[in-house]
Amino acid sequence: MVKTILVVDDEPDIRESVKMILEKNGYKVITAEDGDECLNIIQQTKPDLILLDIMMPGTPVIKVVKQISDIKIAFMSVVRISEARKMGLTEQENIVDFFQKPFNVTDLIDRIELLISD
């Protein structure tokens, strides 16, 4: 079955680039431009993974994350993982990975495959 990934990022170029990479590798991709849109989308469909940016306008990511408990989340951000940890973003069970921007394409694909393989 084709896996679905929700890409949430306020930068359209990043959103599109990640979408292109993932689609090329056989995933179905939905995009959202902030946390609120992300929450709206997951009420209708349930993706296998959410790739979530940390610094976005609108509802703070820490609040967005608290409302999601049954979908795997991987952060993708320019902030460091140590800073994310300090912000309290890495405590939840369903947070599974952290991609440092700028990311490496091959690395991204390898790790995502590992994250959502059955």
Partner: peptide
């Protein structure tokens, strides 16, 4: 942030 899509 700008570097990210460029490198991708």
């Amino acid at each position: 942030n700008t570097m990210t899509p460029m490198k991708a």
